[in-house]
Simulated assay, not measured.
Amino acid sequence: MSNNIERSSQEKRTAFVVIFAFCVMIAEVIVGLSSHSMALFADGVHMGSHVLVIGLNWAAYILVRRLKNKGTTHYDTEKILNLSAFTSGILLILMAIFIIVEAVERFTAEREILNYELALITAGIGLVANTISASVLHGHDGTTDYNSHAAYLHVLSDALTEIGAIIGILCAMFWHITWIDSAVAVISALVVLRWAKRLLWDTGRSLTKA
């Protein structure tokens, strides 16, 4: 008779958000590059950052569940979740640096956005996607652990950068102020850096506790 532990509701919600966000990320990166919208491209990369964060979180849930199925008691499940968050924080910093470098290059090249309508539609889809993801992650009972709460807050910050991308596209579309697009991309990168710093600080303290 099998005594396998079933997937928790948090693991199921996390899996859905990872797959859903990954699809949106691909769309935003492709449209951002093809339309020369740096803000939209940056938002796609930012979306990828929370695919990474939540993906690691998902992997941690799977690992914890499998360890419990094996009856293993030698591992601290909370530290496993925090370690996944700490690792994702390091990668988030690298992504933010990449966005800033790309934004500076686009700013100096002064490239025009080619397809405003498509860029706006994709950014709008991204905003809706983040709203849905936040709702799914939060669920009826709220977030149940540190990692899921961090992922929830990260999705909310992504929604804010989506709004910034839309503002940048609109400014270029109506007033031909193209530098705002790159500026918004840099701001979104700074949001990622700030979030990553706090994530590293909090999880680092937890991992070093005896």
Rank of each mutant, 00 (worst) to 15 (best):
I19L: 09
V53S: 15
M47C: 13
V101C: 09
T77Y: 14
Q10W: 09
I97E: 00
F16I: 09
I62K: 12
M47V: 13
W58Y: 14
L63T: 10
R65Y: 00
A39P: 04
Q10C: 10
S49P: 09
I30D: 08
F98R: 02
S34F: 10
G48Y: 06
A39S: 10
I97G: 01
V18A: 06
M95S: 15
V64D: 07
G32Q: 02
H50W: 09
K70C: 12
G89F: 05
K68C: 11
S35W: 00
V31M: 10
K79M: 05
G32R: 02
K68R: 14
E78S: 10
S37F: 03
S8M: 06
I62H: 11
S84Q: 01
R13F: 04
G48I: 00
A59K: 15
V104K: 05
F41P: 06
E102N: 06
F86W: 03
E102W: 06
K12E: 11
S9V: 15
A85E: 00
I30G: 03
F20C: 04
F20V: 07
I93A: 12
H36R: 10
I80K: 00
N69K: 01
E105F: 02
S49T: 15
L40D: 01
L94C: 07
M38C: 08
R7G: 12
G71A: 03
R7W: 11
I93F: 07
F107L: 14
I26H: 11
A21L: 13
S49F: 12
G89N: 03
L91I: 06
M38T: 09
V51W: 00
V18R: 05
I90V: 10
I62N: 11
F22W: 11
V24E: 13
A21C: 11
A103W: 00
G48P: 04
T72G: 14
A39C: 02
V51D: 04
T73I: 08
S9M: 15
A96S: 10
V101R: 13
F16M: 07
L94N: 05
A42L: 05
L33V: 09
A103S: 03
I80Q: 04
G71V: 06
E102L: 04
A27Q: 15
A42G: 02
V104W: 03
A15S: 11
L94S: 10
F22M: 13
A42R: 06
V64F: 02
A42E: 02
V101G: 07
E28P: 08
H50S: 02
L91G: 02
L83D: 00
K70S: 15
E28L: 05
M47P: 09
I93N: 06
F20Y: 10
E11K: 07
L81E: 13
E28V: 07
L67H: 08
